[in-house]
């Protein structure tokens, strides 16, 4: 085996020696181009938030870094647009946080509980429950958006955090994910725990939850990003400016670009940056967990 692979490497090496430079340079060129395509808009936004709006309007993005960062940040975070004067960046940030965290937390807690019941109990209607829950994977919220909206209205949950979060939880992605994971946990673990005298609640808390740490972290990141980035549902459910999230508020941000004589590029781009940064940072910092969670959820 080692002989063969060493031989293969040798072949690769001799073959590469002639092509080495050109091919590698080409590979890197493509990757750098791709990275730049991804990065360019971010750089433009970073440049414009430091520049006075008038300058941006006339010249567009340039290579100079201006001095307006503080001012634009202040305008974005603490000055309100709209009629009520309540949707400051700060307030929208708070709402986005609540939506992202609340959604992730709710989804994980409810999903884990349901998955635990399905995998670890002898339940007569387990198959029925399974199908009831997993059918929800088939239809995204978008196709049943109007009736969902009506229900939330009837329940008096318009402009509330529960109205924002709970209907979004009504799909089984996390449940499905944890079911897959629980099924891969060795059978003997529950047997050993039962002989060790652990009941269902003890087993869950002492063994299963600590064992799922990585999975919980991965799910949390994915769900946080998903919740934070929700747009259509918040657009329908929150009419009160006080309840706007950053992503929901983007529409108003766009309108500030349109309406004014001098479009407020600095402020608008700052708000867009603030809407982008938290989920992006989470994804970058917890990259390995996030990738694991994402790619394993389809198995």
């Amino acid at each position: 085996m080692t002989d063969i692979s060493a031989h293969a490497h040798a072949i690769a090496q001799t073959r590469k020696r002639t092509w080495f430079k050109l091919e590698t340079v080409f590979d890197h060129a493509i990757l750098i181009l791709g990275s730049l395509l991804m990065l360019l808009p971010l750089l433009i936004m970073l440049q414009t938030v430091t520049t006075p709006d008038l300058e941006t309007m006339k010249l567009g993005p340039t290579f100079t870094i201006g001095t307006e960062l503080d001012d634009n940040f202040r305008k974005a975070m603490f000055e309100a647009s709209g009629f009520s004067g309540q949707n400051t960046g700060m307030n929208m940030l708070k709402n986005s946080m609540i939506l992202g965290l609340g959604f992730a937390l709710g989804k994980i807690v409810i999903g884990m509980m349901a998955a635990y019941a399905i995998v670890y109990f002898r339940l007569r209607f387990a198959t029925l429950a399974f199908w009831l829950i997993f059918t929800t994977l088939l239809l995204p919220l978008e196709v049943r958006i109007l009736p969902s909206y009506e229900i939330v209205q009837q329940l008096g949950m318009m402009n509330t955090y529960q109205g924002l979060i709970i209907p979004l939880i009504a799909s089984a992605t996390a449940t499905f994910f944890f079911r897959q994971f629980f099924r891969s946990v060795p059978e003997e673990l529950i047997e050993a725990a039962r002989i060790d005298g652990a009941g269902p609640i003890k087993f869950f808390i002492d063994i299963l939850v600590p064992l799922s740490q990585t999975m919980i972290a991965a799910m949390f990141i994915i769900m946080f990003v998903y919740g934070w980035n929700q747009y259509l549902w918040p657009t329908m459910i929150t009419t009160d400016e006080n309840m706007y999230t950053l992503v929901r508020g983007i529409k108003q941000i766009v309108q500030t670009l349109e309406g004014n004589n001098i479009p407020e590029f600095g402020r608008a781009n700052m708000l867009a940056l603030i809407a982008i940064l938290p989920p992006v940072l989470v994804v970058i910092f917890f990259q390995s967990w996030f990738v694991k969670g994402l790619t394993e959820s389809d198995k």
Partner: peptide, 20 residues
């Protein structure tokens, strides 16, 4: 389902209830 699953009756129902 695990071979040696718990046979408690009320707990799984309680666990499934919020989701359902």
């Amino acid at each position: 389902m695990k071979r040696a699953g718990f046979s408690t009756k009320w707990l799984p129902i309680l666990l499934l209830l919020p989701q359902l």
